[in-house]
Design a protein around this nucleic acid. Structure first.
Lengths: 157, 157
DNA sequence: TTGAAAATCACTCAAAAGTATGAGCATAAA
DNA sequence: TTTATGCTCATACTTTTGAGTGATTTTCAA
């Protein structure tokens, strides 16, 4: 509960307290004027009870705020992604290493393992190892499938 | 509001009414015994007021179900699926046949030639022929390269 | 400094992909 | 009717890719 509403709550309590006091005085005044003269004490007490019960109900409804239920509605917003943003979260989740991502990117550009090897200045076998690791981590068995999945996971543009 | 809860509500009201009556009798009894003898009438009325205010609060909280206020929070979810439109012009320029495009699309989804064959109900050799033709027309020598180029030419999503 | 993860490389075998060539069939256009 | 095109399939062969295993070096954080 925020400070503001806390203050408002106690302001309300003071206000209602004052109202109660005024009511009591009113009743006291009425007592001498009419009620006691014409009715018995029980009627007076009954009126008092009813009035303050109603006051209590009113007070309660003012003081205690209704429970708020948050309903989250997702609105889809179509956005033309001009710029590619790597999904670091997915990267972490899959445990893809930097080198493996590099190989994946070059694979996506259509390079053969041989071409990737010469581009990264490593041996063909190294590229094979990296790509195999990528396949394991993406749970696929072919490079085309790996590329497709990686694209859908925002690992490559 | 259901019938059941409606009955319960009026049951409650009767119950609380009875309780109020009992309380009044109790207070009346106490009045003669102690309170009036030792304290002034104002104190008695004050006690009455406080008790019935509390009773009212309690009553209110029991009777009136807390209204659940639904707070709708809208969160925007980015959807980057821009409607894909096949570049018919490029299709005509390259002379890709319908079947070849089909094979290309399935290739892009990461399917093997074998899988494409069974999906299209043709033989593996047929798929090989189609894919070879695709490579020729896209001027590439590998399926990953073909997929990359096709994507850039808006032949596939 | 030490231990774990990452990066590097090799070797083998198997599977998949790609090349080349030829051919049958259907259909639509010339 | 002839021709061209697309789709189908086959065989033979080469190249590339992928799986599995094992090993060494590098890097980086605890």
């Amino acid at each position: 509960m925020g400070l503001n509403s806390w203050i408002r709550k106690w302001q309300s309590i003071l206000l209602y307290g004052s109202l109660m006091a005024i009511l009591l005085f009113l009743l006291k005044w009425l007592e001498w004027r009419f009620i006691i003269l014409t009715h018995g004490f029980e009627v007076y007490a009954g009126c008092l009870a009813i009035i303050f019960t109603l006051l209590g109900i009113w007070l309660s409804r003012k003081l205690f705020k209704p429970k708020t239920e948050t309903l989250i509605v997702e609105t889809q917003v179509l956005v033309k992604t001009v710029q590619f943003i790597l999904d670091e979260l997915e990267m972490g989740r899959l445990g893809l290493s930097k080198r493996e991502l590099e190989v994946l990117q070059l694979m996506a550009e259509g390079l053969s393992n041989e071409e990737i090897a010469s581009k990264l200045f490593v041996s063909l076998n190294t590229v094979k190892t990296h790509s195999s690791n990528v396949y394991d981590k993406l749970q696929v068995r072919r490079r085309t499938h790996a590329v497709d999945r990686a694209r859908k996971l925002s690992l490559i543009p």
